[in-house]
Design a protein around this nucleic acid. Sequence first.
DNA 1: CTGTTAGCGCATTCAG
DNA 2: CTGAATGCGCTAACAG
Lengths: 331, 331
Amino acid sequence: MEKMTIKDIAKLVGVSTATVSNYLNGNLTKMSPVTQRKIAEMIRNTNYVPSSVARGLATNDNKTIGVSVADITNPFTSTVLSGIYEECGKHGYRVLFTNASSDASRETDNISKLQNQQVSGLIIDPVEGDSPIFKTITNRDAVMIDRQASQIKVDTVVTDNFESVKRFVSKMLDEEYDTLYYVSWPLKNVSTRWNRYNGFLEATGYTSGTHYLSVHNTGDTSEFVDQLTEIMEDNVGKKVGFFTMNGRVLIRLLAAMEFLGLEYPIDYGVGSYEDLDWMSIMKPGISCIHQDSYAIGTKAVEILLDKLNSKTEAEPRLIEVPTTEKIRASY
Amino acid sequence: MEKMTIKDIAKLVGVSTATVSNYLNGNLTKMSPVTQRKIAEMIRNTNYVPSSVARGLATNDNKTIGVSVADITNPFTSTVLSGIYEECGKHGYRVLFTNASSDASRETDNISKLQNQQVSGLIIDPVEGDSPIFKTITNRDAVMIDRQASQIKVDTVVTDNFESVKRFVSKMLDEEYDTLYYVSWPLKNVSTRWNRYNGFLEATGYTSGTHYLSVHNTGDTSEFVDQLTEIMEDNVGKKVGFFTMNGRVLIRLLAAMEFLGLEYPIDYGVGSYEDLDWMSIMKPGISCIHQDSYAIGTKAVEILLDKLNSKTEAEPRLIEVPTTEKIRASY
DNA sequence: CTGTTAGCGCATTCAG
DNA sequence: CTGAATGCGCTAACAG
């Protein structure tokens, strides 16, 4: 059973390759119903499948969208990817996957490679808000997700960071905390971290730069523990709470607190962005903000394919996907 | 700046396309050093990048490996994928991603699509141990990971399931448990679940079919809670322990126990397969088996590319990646 | 309604 | 050491 080509089935049916090609592309008006039927049957019998590679060469559009993610290991990201894949499948697109492992230079590399593979479109989950490579992408064939560039040059799909944190932290405030802290990876140039921080500031009224605590995602957390110690000492007798900007940061906080012999919700209160499965079985459960990662993926694809089909370049938009709250008992 | 082709740079340099092609493919002996230099320079100046699509058509090998995963949302799987991507990149292969969302028919679909996209090779993380589509894949261009087929027809890379569970459970036994239970998703035809169960049986000496508890990964867990209740009632005054076959199952168990008002390690002991970041911050920390998911990914790619390059079909092998133990205080 | 033909960008003989 | 010619599988005018 050799690999069939369009020529083979044309010969078998007794028509030209052009006719078969037309059939494959749905130009049914260009041939008689009999021919259609004969071609259809022959294709079924031979299990013929057109070569997407050849088609890609001929049409200069190989129906694949390239995805660059910052870190596939992040549970948020894998859910987004599943959304992307699902939506692409619905529209007959494949997905070419790349992962930067949180390394900006890897990302640059990945994106330029994707561009050179002549993908139809690009979906980028950026490592940081800025990168020279971003200058090379256009709003005609790309969309960004999760994190927004400092300058929005292409459509960007993010979760509702600012407002949802503002709302959530306001609720924490209702519990009469004396003081609240925002805990995050180093803010750097990452929009999600900043937007959540700003939502936090808006709710609390604190001034920027204060009530902010950063952890490094690398091994050593002694510095972080020291800062925490100081904060807790400064606030003896007061009610102090923390808002962590994602699940992994929350883990750092909890580990550090455990190390200090402190327990929530007694010694401190805590709430977090991101809703991970294990948060519900903590004792007590972690109150958090649930984001619809899957929808971010599907939405991004929808927008992208829309653009690809209507070759008109529009103004870049910022789409915010709403969140929900899971109130449990951690604060 | 139009898209350059091999013809363009051939013309610019003043040689034929064949020479440029030879240069691109490292056949440097076929041209003078001067020509090499001129071509090299021209390529640099024009930012020329050969079209992988065209090359794919011409060579009938488009340097992409297709990946079919059972569920990208599984933390295990995303780490594996990152390993796959990394190793592929090192060897100049791209990765075409597909996800079955734990649906066997989606998987069949995905794999047959990948086959029709003329990928160079296939890596499959199967939904179940058996599927008609597996008959269509050969050991020349595919490897399976994580779960093994009931009949090993292609090289398969898995974690050391049986032995590591056997060892781990033996240690639990040293703590003088009166009785131990294995908790799992329904065993079905999934090798990882069975192999871990068999390791459990080997260590405990129980007979197959006993001391086994299954949870469904769908919403309702009332049945599971009932079984648990019964077990705990049957064993009042005795020391009872549980081994969960992965992190998500552990979560179900913990949630159910919480519902019953029971606490580890007091009312029961627990250990688990899989080492997830949150397990260390549970109180007390969860003792578990740590598997090297990343290595599974890289290993799979290594084996696959090996096969692709040495077109000789060998006997399918089963490769087991070793695990390590994280002993904390949950039993 | 159907067939001819010329590419798409590159690799690969085979001559020179 | 170099180039002309041919083909990979398919699409897209353009004729008929």
